[in-house]
């Protein structure tokens, strides 16, 4: 795609800006800022990836993955429930473990090679999906403990330990965090051709090969989101209780 084509393609933005203006949605400013941010971020990433791909140094790959992990953990901070302390570190731990397990299995099984052009984009997908799942988990955990406080206390008053008293809330929170990934897996190929698969096909990869890659991506996303959510939620929920197993919200 030439730069001229890309500039002409940007004319597509005129439509949502006009709609936003006519319908008084007050989104024009946000839209322009988000597009400018995306352009700047992608240009920077493009240069970084060019440098990394040329360098072919494992340490640079690992450093870049770690930077992605830190950014993802920073992005979960806003969703961390009020009762939970050290949310950044909990998220980072959950992301590191889920990414490490998933990527190690993919590399050991030969589904992925330790090559810069495979590790960076795939780990980016894993981390991004795990981050979204953790964010959904945090939001729902806070809601569950606040809205179902009476149920939890009724169970505590029968002598239940915190993990039994809040088992339903933990299960519901985990389900809600992972369901978007499961739902998107269900509709693969029917509703949408996923980004990675479409990208491969556009780049000239035969569809059957692209599909194999997409199936692997589906496995890894399900695994990573489940591991990350489980770790983040299981560490976080305990902080809703004090030493006397009383709710501190």
């Amino acid at each position: 795609m030439s730069m001229t084509s890309l500039i002409f393609a940007s004319s597509l933005l005129i439509i949502p800006i006009i709609v936003s203006y006519k319908q008084q949605l007050d989104l024009s400013k946000d839209m322009i800022i988000s597009v400018l941010r995306a352009i700047i971020q992608l240009i920077i990433v493009g240069y970084i990836l060019t440098f990394v791909f040329e360098a072919r140094q494992p340490i640079i790959v690992i450093t870049l993955v770690f930077i992605i992990l830190i950014n993802a953990a920073l992005n979960t901070r806003k969703r961390v429930p009020n009762a939970v302390k050290h949310g950044f570190w909990i998220s980072l731990f959950a992301l590191v473990i889920s990414t490490s397990i998933t990527m190690t299995i993919l590399i050991l099984t030969g589904a992925l090679h330790f090559k810069v052009n495979e590790i960076i984009p795939v780990s980016g997908m894993v981390i991004s999906n795990a981050m979204i799942a953790i964010n959904i988990g945090y939001t729902n955990l806070e809601k569950a403990f606040t809205q179902q406080r009476m149920e939890i206390e009724a169970k505590l008053s029968l002598g239940a330990l915190p993990h039994l008293a809040s088992k339903t809330q933990i299960q519901d929170t985990m389900k809600m965090a992972v369901i978007p990934t499961i739902d998107s897996a269900k509709t693969l190929g029917i509703v949408a051709l996923p980004g990675m698969m479409s990208g491969l096909i556009i780049a000239g990869t035969p569809p059957l090969e692209a599909i194999r890659f997409q199936i692997m991506v589906t496995f890894m996303l399900l695994s990573a989101t489940m591991i990350a959510t489980m770790i983040a939620i299981f560490i976080s929920y305990k902080q809703f209780y004090n030493k006397r197993h009383q709710l501190n919200i």
């Binding site: 009476m150 149920e151 009724a154 505590l156 008053s157 029968l158 330990l161 006397r244 197993h245």
Partner: peptide
């Protein structure tokens, strides 16, 4: 003192039934 009891042990001995009935499952 309550502090010397495990919370779960204490609550099995002194059991509280709240005003609003909460049903499980």
């Amino acid at each position: 003192s309550y502090i010397n009891y495990k919370p779960e042990q204490l609550r099995q001995t002194i059991s509280y039934c709240p005003q609003t009935p909460i049903i499980f499952g």
